[in-house]
Design a protein around this nucleic acid. Structure first.
Lengths: 346, 346
DNA sequence: CAAACCCGTCGAAGCGCATCGATAACGATG
DNA sequence: CATCGTTATCGATGCGCTTCGACGGGTTTG
């Protein structure tokens, strides 16, 4: 591997000049610059990152801490990964991928070993033991997620509360006053994640505001449980005319069960949910959803992170919630005033 | 941040002694070792990775190159990521996540800048422009996937050919002589990936061997197209009694369409496919599948990589195919000899 | 026309570690 | 008892870079 010394010799300049050509931190005459750049090109020179880090105490690496717990929505997660990695590269940074297995000590290691200049913590839970450590790390940190105790830390996330509210509003706007919320089990791992909690908070608030009744049924995202839950829904009185799906992987089973009952989403029952677009669109009846734009969240997180790295803003935290976007598809219908049919058909 | 110099001073030894305590490359008296280790603990010392890399020309980082092209099966992908990251940490290594956006030049950058000691290339296609570069990089490389031109490179992957064959064998064993293969469009991005090609090669070979007829229908993994394709299948003569699903996201739509036709998988029609376990199990009729054990592939890839890093084996390549595992669920039935009913029911 | 500046360049001093050779202390060996 | 290994430690060097101060020559200024 050629070093900057090699480049300097070949270009007939000093090593420090090569360094200044690369960093642009001092003015260089056009002639020398050209000569040096040609040699760099020709030799295929790349600065040694270790040496660079040692001398400048800047690694140009961002640590991305992902708790790969099972049962995570990987579709969304990988959108994050792709976008974050790409944005990092655009600013000449790289991404160090760290699982959360190591816990808080892992964060200390990253910073202590000077493996990265900044951290992004993904999938932050309501109570997350990475939080207190993150605060004292002395490097810029951005959280994806909104923990309870977030003082001094910058958070970015989807606005799940607005998402919940939007679902209810859309229902109410179409005349549905009796809504079934097919919800994630609050006792489960996923249910404890704060996005789950915030979504339901949004639903509840909007229900109150709009004067509609929301009945919650906890379900697992599989056909058997969907079947059980839909049976319950159909027996409710007054009859439920709209369903909100919280699980991102419940659209398939729920749609399947509804169809088995002769109920077509968008005609016999209004259905709205939270899932990836690709899934929503490939259903028998494409589903109206709240779109989760991972790219937008990533963009904001990275923008903030780089501003912190460049000392443009203090590391003091605030919550940056990305507005939700309702994508209307065929699964929502206006309430029919004479729909008692559900019971009989079923 | 404390340095090894700080540790040395506090422990009353020289800096080099601290270094030897940490690396274990020279013998240290138990007394000194204990003293040094205590100071390390107490000061919260972590060796600076940049300095370490500079001095030892070893980064303890593995570059993981992932082409985040849309339409990738992220469920499987993230299993890889999680397992690889975890295995790396177990050997005191970290993972640098690199998207393939930069192409071959990105690989040169990684090695040229000495950002990592070794590379794993994921989702390697049949013809992949990263391959020629990878070969000349001068660092250990392991490919996940099997490109055509793989001389000198170590590949690990699922044995998709065996997967295809196993599907056909299972069908044949249960008496099915007329099989429909609902296949990925070979002209699509995904269809060009070599795993797709290999699966179909396995299917074809086994069909020939077992003397069964496989008719291929290209489909998209959505309800509309599934409907179109199943209509075609049901009109075939002689009647198809078993379906092989190549798309990992076709089980939902296909099952849905079959049920609409009054056909229950596992009773009226045998269905087998290639998809994540979680999906297979949450279907109305849990589906028999070929299980893709990402963890096993990861383990083998990492094991080989570390052996190359430790000079235990040469960097000469071979293909390491992970045997497939058939997981029987409820979607397969023995052929009924008098099933003409499909047409009439449909 | 000298003083004050700016521009482009160079030399040198580290950054924090790994590692090699040297050295001292100390049994074991003949 | 002189010699040879061993074992445990230290000092010095260098990895490849960034960055600071210095310096010469050209330009501006009073």
């Amino acid at each position: 591997m050629p070093t900057s010394e090699d480049v300097a010799r070949a270009a007939g300049v000093s090593q420090s000049t090569v360094s200044y050509v690369m960093s642009g931190k001092r003015s260089i005459s056009p002639a020398t610059r050209k000569r040096v750049e040609e040699v760099i090109e020709q030799l295929g020179y790349h600065p040694n990152s270790g040496a660079q880090a040692l001398a400048s105490s800047r690694t140009n690496v961002i640590g991305l801490v992902v708790p790969f717990r099972p049962n995570l929505d990987m579709t969304v997660m990988s959108e994050f990964l792709a976008e974050i990695a790409s944005l990092a590269r655009a600013q000449d940074h790289d991404i160090l991928l760290v699982t959360a297995d190591e816990g808080p000590a892992g964060l200390r290691r990253l910073v202590g070993r000077a493996l990265c200049d900044a951290l992004i913590l993904m999938e932050v839970g309501s109570k997350d033991d990475r939080i207190p450590v993150a605060r004292e790390l002395g490097v810029p940190v951005v959280l994806i997620g909104v923990p309870e105790d977030r003082a001094g830390l910058h958070c970015v996330d989807f606005d799940f509360e607005a998402a919940g509210a939007t679902c209810v509003d859309e229902m109410a706007d179409l005349g549905h006053g009796q809504i079934g919320l097919l919800a994630i089990d609050p006792a489960s791992m996923k249910g404890k994640a704060n996005f789950s909690v915030r979504f339901r908070r949004g639903v509840d608030a909007a229900a109150l505001r709009r004067g509609v009744q929301v009945r919650t049924l906890v379900m697992q995202a599989n056909h058997t449980d969907a079947s059980r839950v839909i049976d319950e829904v159909l027996l409710m009185d007054p009859p439920v005319t709209g369903l909100i799906l919280q699980h991102s992987d419940s659209p398939d089973p729920v749609t399947a069960v509804l169809l088995e009952h002769g109920l077509v989403p968008g005609s016999d029952l209004a259905v709205i949910g939270l899932c990836p677009d690709a899934l929503a669109e490939r259903l028998r009846v494409p589903m109206t959803t709240i779109q989760q734009q991972a790219s937008e969240v990533s963009r904001r997180a990275m923008a903030t992170l780089f501003r912190m790295l460049n000392q443009e803003i203090p590391t003091t935290g605030e919550v940056d919630l990305v507005p939700v976007k309702l994508v209307r598809r065929a699964s929502m219908n206006r309430r029919a005033f004479t729909r008692e049919s559900a019971h009989t058909i079923a």
